[in-house]
Every structure is written in C-alpha cells, then in structure tokens.
C-alpha cells in the first residue's frame, strides 16, 4: 500500500512512546486512587465515606476533557503554580480513572460472600486481617476484568492530551498533517493502527495476568 508509507512512522513512534509512558504512569496513579477511594467508601467512618464519595461523584459526573483543561489551565491560575502538560495529564487521567476504578474495587469487595467475613470473624481475625487475608485476595480476582476494561479506556483517553499540546502520538500525527495536508488519510490510518495495536497488547497482557492469578485455585 503506497499511501501507508513508512516514512511517517518514525515521528509517530516518537509520539507513541509518550502515549505509552503517559498510559503506564496514569494507570499506576489511577490504581492507587481506585484502591484508596474504593476502600474509603466502605470505611466505618462516615467522614471518610463522605470525602471519597464526593471525589468519585465529581470526577465521574464531569468529563475527562473538562478535568484536563481545568487542571492545566485553571488550576495553575488559582494556585499560582506552573504545571507541565505531562503532570496535568497524569493528574487528570489518574483522578478520573481512579474514580471509575473505585467502583470496581468497591463492588468486588461487596461481592465476596458474607460467609467469608463470618468465618474470619469466627477465627478471631481483626478487621484489618479480615480485609488483608480473606476478603481482598478474593475480591482482587474479581477486579481484574474491570480494571482491564478501564486500562483500555484510559489508553484511548490519553489521545485528549493532544488538546493541551502534550506531544503524544495524536499530536505528532496532527503536526505531520500540518506539513502536508494531502497525507491526512495516511496519517490518521497510522494513528488508528497504532492505537489498536497498543489496546490489543494491553488486552493480551490483562488476559494473561488473569489466567495466572486464577491458575492453581482449581
């Protein structure tokens, strides 16, 4: 195929590196927020539940792009700080997908049968031990598919950082396009292909780790 020419690839791959880096860092941040908020929403203390629910509802109730713009353009004005596009992107993606992830954490923990909590109570485990040794390990297996889906959504969501001029793969594509508008179809085709490969690889990794976790439990 002539129009899918390979000379477009090097600059796009440079951008893809940024996209993947951003994806990985944001997944880690989002995972931390998901655990924090998911467990926090099940806390015994009403104040912790209220704070975490507020965070989750705000970030699920508005949209990622608005959060990204707000953190990149408005927050620095409010606090009088400078945020790099990368920092703003990680914060926005981490908080946004952390809020969605907290729902996965919460529902998985609630899905562990009540008998498991009762058995660990009967063995005189402390509330922390019940969570750490009995409930969480079982909930963890149930969380994996949900986390897998969110990771794909997060990867797709990174394309929006182009709009705050972070030099990700989309940004590189649009820059190439500004040099030669006639090659737009080829550039966009490459972008779709690269995103698809990245998503698919992520899916495979998730499936592999799921199989690894489930293995050995009969």
């Amino acid at each position: 195929m002539d129009w899918l020419s390979l000379d477009l690839l090097p600059p796009l791959l440079k951008g893809l590196k940024i996209t993947l880096l951003l994806t990985v860092i944001s997944i880690v941040v989002a995972f931390c927020f998901a655990l924090l908020a998911g467990l926090g929403r099940l806390s015994r203390f009403a104040i912790v539940r209220a704070i975490m629910s507020t965070y989750v509802e705000i970030f699920r109730g508005t949209s990622l792009l608005i959060q990204l713009f707000w953190i990149y353009f408005a927050l620095p004005m409010l606090l009088d700080v400078r945020l790099s596009a990368m920092t703003a992107a990680v914060i926005a993606l981490g908080l946004n997908y952390g809020a969605y992830g907290s729902e996965v954490v919460r529902s998985s923990i609630l899905a562990v049968p009540k008998g498991q909590i009762e058995a660990s109570t009967a063995l005189n485990m402390t509330p922390y031990q019940r969570m750490r040794r009995v409930i969480f390990p079982q909930a963890w297996v149930m969380m994996l598919p949900g986390f897998g889906n969110l990771q794909i959504e997060l990867l797709k969501g990174t394309s929006l950082v182009y709009l705050i001029t972070l030099a990700d793969v989309t940004y590189q594509g649009m820059t190439l396009r500004s040099f030669d508008i006639s090659r737009t179809p080829a550039i966009l085709a490459w972008l779709l292909i690269l995103y698809f490969i990245a998503s698919y690889t992520l899916t495979l990794i998730v499936r592999l780790s799921e199989r690894k976790v489930v293995k050995g439990r009969g």
Partner: peptide, 25 residues
C-alpha cells in the same frame, strides 16, 4: 464455630486454611 456452608477460604490451600489464624491471630 463451624458453619452450615463451610465458608472455607477458596484462595488458600487446605493447610493454609487451617494455619492462617494460628499464624496471624
């Protein structure tokens, strides 16, 4: 207590089911 529906810990081997509370409690 022993329960009607056993409530064994499905993610642990039989040995660990029995030792878990001994070790940690």
């Amino acid at each position: 207590m022993v329960f009607q529906h056993f409530n064994l810990f499905p993610h642990m081997t039989i040995l660990r089911n029995v030792t878990e509370a001994l070790i940690h409690v």
